[in-house]
């Protein structure tokens, strides 16, 4: 599987054009009146097959809202979001809320296949076993429940879950922020491995600039719902143009 997308002229799997996303927010503490706020402003970018693109910004700038809009969770928007034929899946931020505590790991991983309904029982079992090995865990984990796993193990399961339906794009929202430092490395390496071996594109959302640099080839910087700068990793990190980017970089690197 080549990861350069030499499959034809158009290997773009996601195109976002002039996206404005809105969100209803309650005004008073007790009244049910609400105000429609604009969270994303004129966002445009694309992602090509096999790329790892980073999205950095501080909390509240709209990164998660962008993810939700692309996936169709948030529906109040103007502009266009075009997926290729294959879908997108998400790896959530909090490994402690993203797995159903009442079910076993095996059940959780099989569920998307059950819903899809295309495979037979043994085919499903086989795919689940393959997937759990792919993320570095053995099949004994299938019988366990999420609360028996560590943060790093849970995140591996979340990644496996996102891959079950073979999406072309994974949106990872702060995938390592809640993990211990020594474990972050392993998960990042896992994401890199999956990207290289399966050709899956990743939209890597994080507030941590160093982590984004370590795995992404292209980077977008977001502030207050705008993408203020985007370019290759070297361009954005070594020769930033926008003052906000420079400010972010200086607080991380210098002192």
């Amino acid at each position: 599987m080549n990861d350069n997308g030499n499959k034809g002229t158009d290997n773009t799997i996601l195109t976002v054009s002039h996206l404005n996303t809105y969100y209803r927010e309650k005004t008073g503490r007790f009244s049910s009146a609400s105000v429609r706020r604009q969270v994303l402003k004129d966002v445009s970018f694309d992602i090509k097959q096999g790329e790892i693109v980073g999205l950095v910004g501080e909390s509240g700038c709209g990164k998660s809202t962008l993810a939700k809009t692309i996936l169709g969770i948030v529906k109040d928007y103007e502009g266009t979001v075009e997926h290729g034929s294959a879908g997108a899946q998400m790896v959530f931020q909090d490994p402690y809320g993203s797995l159903n505590p009442a079910k076993t790991v095996g059940w959780i991983l099989e569920e998307p296949l059950r819903i899809q309904g295309k495979l037979t029982d043994p085919e499903r079992d086989e795919r689940v076993a393959r997937m759990i090995n792919l993320v570095g865990l053995d099949e004994s984990y299938l019988k366990r429940k999420p609360n028996e796993l560590s943060g790093g193990q849970r995140q591996r399961i979340c990644i496996a879950l996102a891959l079950m339906l073979r999406p072309r794009l994974i949106i990872a929202d702060e995938p390592v922020s809640a993990l211990d430092v020594t474990v972050q490395d392993q998960i990042l390496k896992l994401l890199l491995k999956l990207n290289r071996e399966l050709g899956i594109a990743i939209l890597f959302i994080s507030h941590d600039l160093k982590v984004v640099y370590s795995v992404c080839s292209r980077v977008m910087v977001m502030k207050d719902g705008h993408i203020v700068e985007q370019g290759s990793d070297e361009e954005v990190y070594k020769s930033p143009k926008h003052p906000y980017t420079k400010q972010l970089l200086s607080s991380v690197l210098g002192d």
């Binding site: 430092v181 020594t182 972050q184 490395d185 390496k189 160093k210 640099y213 370590s214 795995v215 991380v252």
Partner: peptide
């Protein structure tokens, strides 16, 4: 040593 090595640095992660 492990802890210090794991500090996120501004460098590319190697894929083996």
């Amino acid at each position: 040593k492990r802890l210090i090595a794991a500090i996120p640095r501004m460098e590319k992660l190697e894929y083996e």
